[in-house]
Nucleic acid binder design. Sequence first.
DNA 1: TTTACAAACACAAAATATAGTGGTATAATA
DNA 2: TATTATACCACTATATTTTGTGTTTGTAAA
Lengths: 149, 149
Amino acid sequence: MKCPMCSYPESKVIDSRPSADHSSIRRRRECEKCQKRFTTYEIVETVPLVVVKRDKSRETFDRSKLLRSIISACDKRHVSREQMETIADEIQFTLQNSLQNEVYSTYIGELVLEKLRGIDEVAYIRFASVYRSFKDISQFLEEITNLNK
Amino acid sequence: MKCPMCSYPESKVIDSRPSADHSSIRRRRECEKCQKRFTTYEIVETVPLVVVKRDKSRETFDRSKLLRSIISACDKRHVSREQMETIADEIQFTLQNSLQNEVYSTYIGELVLEKLRGIDEVAYIRFASVYRSFKDISQFLEEITNLNK
DNA sequence: TTTACAAACACAAAATATAGTGGTATAATA
DNA sequence: TATTATACCACTATATTTTGTGTTTGTAAA
């Protein structure tokens, strides 16, 4: 590992500690040339998450886009911004921990529905109406009837 | 190191290679629980560069601020924006490769002077006049006299 | 000011990673 | 299409890192 001070390419580890949740490793290194010490982090490669849309086109996952869709479903409802952020966070976490690096937008939609269902029924129905493209009132009614089963 | 798929905290290294310039190490790991494999990178901690000002107050280094000071010194002079950007880049590079993570603003000033001196004398004098707070015309003259020595 | 916590430091035994060699597959490029 | 570069994979001997325990220090919070 190259020394950030003198750029010499070899250094040795003198201490190594996993982070509390083991999501990274902090190492303390010493340059073999100038003896200066520095810190490094080993982190999991972040694979950019690709979302496959209905028309099969692909785009990189965008948390703010996800959040916007949640916000608009919750408009005027008693759902706090914090709750919405949490939903977005949880979904992002779920996606990033899914084994794939490509996820279907429909899967994300289902995840949002699942979360909203437990928080606000109106927001849930609204999101479903957009997401599932309800064609007429009967589908609405059907979804609402299923809600309390 | 936590498995990004199943979140199990223990994994083993199965391959480890330094990058071409030794600025990072890529490791291939295998989760001890789910056996899935993933890649990690060990990178040097990026220490935010702190600038110590004349009054001893500290702030984080801001390239755009540095650039602004160069731009105003070069106002109406034949120095291209590209040259100014290059000066800022070179100084930032110098600072980030300096052994310290705290640098004195006076040091940055000297670096700018050094660069300007080779490019445009008027810009140089202007920057010096602000930076060194010339009190009267005699200091100006002195600096100008020294310029072509 | 006291407390609490993270980071730096030290040391040593035990466990694991590193780096050489070499093969395969894939993607980007000429 | 041939070429190149990169990632992934396998195997092995040896050197290095890891991790427990414990001290110290700087800094943030109470």
